[in-house]
Nucleic acid binder design. Structure first.
Length: 472
RNA sequence: GGUCCCAUCGUCUAGUGGUUAGGACGCUGGCCUCUCACGCCGGAAGCCGGGGUUCAACUCCCCGUGGGACUACCA
């Protein structure tokens, strides 16, 4: 075992799309383990598939990593830039007779596979070219001569011991006919040469692991530790995909989720620490361990993520919340230049929103002198007999010297008492006068944020609204 | 089909042979209250099935069943 070696983990996405929820969690686990162990976290882009890899995808993945706060110590390395190294190692294997050229065509192989399946045999490569000692040629691939006897044991950090009979393994292609190495080969060479000590990846890779171990041995590399993390499923227990809703990390940013919420959600999907649900990042780094990752697949639960988002919104520092809110306000055509006003709004609203756009939506009344008055609400609460009370509030407000939350609260109560009515009686009408709606932050909060002037004019507007609609 | 993995409330999970099976989301009853939230208190809801092992199994073993992954010149 590599006892005193520095821990080195990596995240190795292929740039064929955005960073999705599943990949993000794997990256998070890998990152946390490196940080917890004071090791290094390496980012490597697996772009050996020339057809499907794009630069936009690479950019998108990097952006998402940054948004989540998963900073890397080395890289990004690009696998495609390392083909010279890969070819060198392939050369070595051929020279040692551990690999060989194969000229079977994809069509022939497909046909054999079909026939094997139809006859109920296992569809593995039949070894046609295994001992033909073929020279290199155009269109030939290179296959690894996989040991056909014995067993290969994977000591998985998460799943425990997994054993495979080598006879189940066939001679996998390590170099394609276009001269590029395949994933299973490149990943071994790169992980080994980058001194990765812990390969943490999705458990869709477990069946690749024994062949990779055999490759490590053939190349005389030290074998790293493996940890295969379970998949994330959709509500119907099938692999998470677009039809289960947003699966891209950046989509959640756009939907108004906080990175802290997504990280907290993702880490608890599979990993746990007793009954604790809320984890700050530094706490996670301190507590995280691979042993506490569960073995079974988990269903993605949008409701719980929403709850966490709400939690982080209400406990976010107000200045920070104001900052992340700005782009969302901008989308609604609002530019909050008065930071003091913005901070007041944030304070009023932070306990009442699950997402950022939701918060923007409920903040709209702060930004217009004439918030649209909900007709049903007006019909119910803006009655003729209320007009007088409202007018009185506006009038007496001018004499209120202690315009603080407590002062306003007392003012309203005293006024109600003086007029022999319940505060309840004027609360809703006043709320509608100020916001146009029946649901809002507390009256004292809104009035404080809005300021005396806005409050007075909105009340007078409501009074004339009543006159126009009810007393005509 | 073959290989491999997995299995506690609807969902995420704690549990590590003896517990009234705990927490969280969601659902729900109530409290707080100027509305809506927040918060607080309570409730319904679970060990896939069958065999063993054991004085005792959610926990260990086996077999079913169910789900998932892989089975590419994708990663």
């Amino acid at each position: 075992m590599q006892k005193n070696k520095q821990v080195r983990t990596r995240f190795a996405p292929s740039p064929t799309g955005y960073l999705h929820i599943g990949g993000a969690r794997t990256a998070l686990f890998s990152w946390l383990y490196a940080r917890h162990s004071q090791g290094k976290f390496v980012l490597r882009i697996e772009d050996t598939d020339q057809q499907r890899s794009t630069e936009e995808s690479t950019r998108a993945i990097l952006d998402a990593m940054e948004w989540l706060g998963l900073n890397w110590d080395e890289g990004p390395y690009f696998q495609a830039e390392r083909v010279t190294i890969h070819r060198e190692m392939i050369r070595k294997l051929i020279d040692e007779d551990k690999a060989y050229y194969c000229v079977c065509t994809p069509e022939e192989l497909e046909e054999k596979r079909r026939r094997a399946l139809a006859e109920g045999r296992k569809p593995k490569y039949d070894g046609t070219c295994r001992d033909r000692k073929l020279p290199p040629s155009d269109g030939a691939v290179v296959r690894f001569r996989c040991p056909q006897t014995g067993t290969t044991i994977v000591e998985d950090l998460i799943k425990g011991k997994i054993s495979f009979n080598n006879e189940e393994l066939d001679d996998l292609i390590i170099q394609r006919s276009d001269g590029y190495p395949t994933y299973n080969f490149a990943v071994v060479v790169d992980d080994a040469q980058m001194n990765i000590t812990h390969v943490i990846r999705g458990d869709d890779h477990v069946n690749n692991t024994p062949r990779q171990i055999l490759l490590y041995e053939a190349l005389d590399y030290e074998i790293p530790q493996f940890g295969h993390v379970p998949m994330i499923l959709g509500a119907d227990k099938t692999r998470l995909s677009k039809r289960h809703g947003a699966t891209s990390v950046m989509a959640y940013k756009e939907l108004g989720y906080l990175p802290e919420a997504l990280v907290n959600y993702l880490v608890r999907l599979g990993w746990s620490h007793g009954d604790q649900e809320i984890f700050a990042l530094d706490e996670l780094i301190e507590l995280f361990d691979l042993g506490s990752i569960g073995k079974s697949a988990a269903v993605f639960n949008p409701d719980k993520l929403l709850w966490l988002n709400q939690h982080y919104i209400k406990s976010y520092p107000e200045e920070k919340l104001l900052d992340v809110l700005r782009p969302f306000w901008k989308k609604s055509g609002l530019d909050v230049t008065d930071s003091d006003y913005g901070l007041h709004i944030v304070r009023d609203l932070k306990a009442r929103a699950k997402t950022l756009p939701e918060m923007v939506e409920s903040s709209l009344f702060y930004f217009t002198d004439e918030p649209p008055i909900d007709a049903d609400a007006a019909a119910k609460f803006l009655t003729p007999e209320i007009a007088d009370h409202l007018g009185a509030i506006a009038d007496e407000l001018t004499t209120l010297s202690d315009y603080s939350k407590e002062g306003i609260e007392a003012f309203l109560r005293n006024l109600a008492e003086a007029r022999s009515i319940k505060l309840k009686t004027i609360a809703q009408p006043l709320r509608i006068a100020l916001t146009g709606k029946t649901a809002s932050p507390g009256l004292d909060d809104i009035m404080l944020t809005l300021g005396k002037e806005r409050v007075s004019s909105r009340i007078r507007r409501a009074v004339s609204y009543i006159r126009n609609h009810r007393l005509s």
